[in-house]
């Protein structure tokens, strides 16, 4: 600590020396990029662990359900191998769980270590924090989705009729579930709570969401109930992008995703406005 002055000696005494001062439209690019990059650097540093688990899990699904069981099954959709049928649903499953995990952990961890103080005292808006943290988690999910898709090619024949829609849908769902995870991360006050919602709500919804079957295979009474499960529409829409099946549902799927995202945005802005579990 010999000379802390030298580094800035050349600078004039600083009045406010940085860009936008408040205002709704002001956007602090340096801050958002720093937060986003910080999250992503951590992801790439542990990319092996980040990708290995979901990829291995998905590969196991293909081996067990696709090859071992699927080969003895009558096809659910005529002309489509069961293994191929599984691809969109399995990608969505991984996207749901990993988006929630990454985003919730991303904001819970600073709360846990206490480094959240820096975020709260920084000249950034809540919107900027959400864009950076949720954006980083969604980016990870999209990368993961594409890696799982590539893995699927190794096991089963895959066709993608609407590739652009497939990617857009992947991004949209990644963002929506990352936002959901972000909210869980703010809400959670312990690691147990962090796992609580994914285990208790998301896993059942996804298993009942038609990843392994189509909804019209359910008993008629349950088909109506299934329509209330948003995950059903997400998987149906995503499957449409691959196989062009259930084409009627694609707008419902987009509508459901958009509505889900809007509700989440409402919750997150309420959380920040009231400082819910972020500050006293």
């Amino acid at each position: 600590m010999n000379d802390v002055t030298s580094a800035t000696a050349a600078k004039p005494a600083i009045a406010v020396h940085r860009g936008p001062t408040g205002g709704v439209l002001a956007f602090n690019g340096n801050s958002v990029w720093s937060m986003y990059r910080f999250q992503m650097v951590r992801f790439f540093r542990t990319i092996g662990e980040s990708l290995a688990t979901p990829v291995i899990t998905t590969a196991l699904y293909f081996v067990v359900f696709g090859s071992a069981i699927g080969s003895r099954m009558a096809p659910i959709v005529p002309g489509l191998e069961y293994g191929s049928f599984l691809v969109p649903g399995l990608i969505m499953l991984s996207i749901f769980t990993n988006s929630i995990f990454n985003a919730s952990f991303g904001i819970y961890f600073p709360k846990f270590t206490g480094t959240i103080y820096e975020l709260l005292s920084a000249p950034v808006s809540y919107l900027e924090i959400v864009i950076a943290f949720v954006g980083a988690a969604a980016t990870k999910s999209v990368i993961l989705g594409l890696v799982i898709l590539a893995t699927a090619y190794l096991f089963v024949p895959v066709q993608i009729l609407h590739p652009v829609e497939m990617v857009l849908f992947l991004i949209l769902v990644s963002f929506a579930f990352s936002l959901f995870g972000f909210i869980i991360g703010i809400w959670a006050q312990s690691f147990e709570q962090l796992n609580f919602i994914p285990m208790l709500i998301v896993t059942p919804l996804t298993f009942l969401g038609g990843a392994f079957y189509t909804v019209d295979m359910l008993p008629p009474a349950w088909q109506g109930v299934a329509q209330l499960n948003p995950v059903v529409h997400l998987i149906a829409g995503y499957r449409w992008a691959f196989f062009g099946l259930e084409g009627d549902n694609v707008f419902v799927s987009l509508g459901v995703t958009a509505a889900f995202t809007l509700v989440l945005l409402g919750i997150v802005s309420w959380m920040f406005k009231t400082g819910y579990r972020l500050k006293n």
């Binding site: 600083i14 406010v16 940085r18 936008p20 001062t21 408040g22 002001a26 602090n28 270590t113 206490g114 480094t115 959240i116 103080y117 820096e118 005292s121 920084a122 000249p123 950034v124 808006s125």
Partner: peptide
């Protein structure tokens, strides 16, 4: 934004 960009904080607890 303007106010906080002027302020630096070294917290009491080891938040790292």
């Amino acid at each position: 934004r303007a106010a906080r960009s002027l302020i630096g904080l070294v917290p009491q607890e080891m938040h790292i």
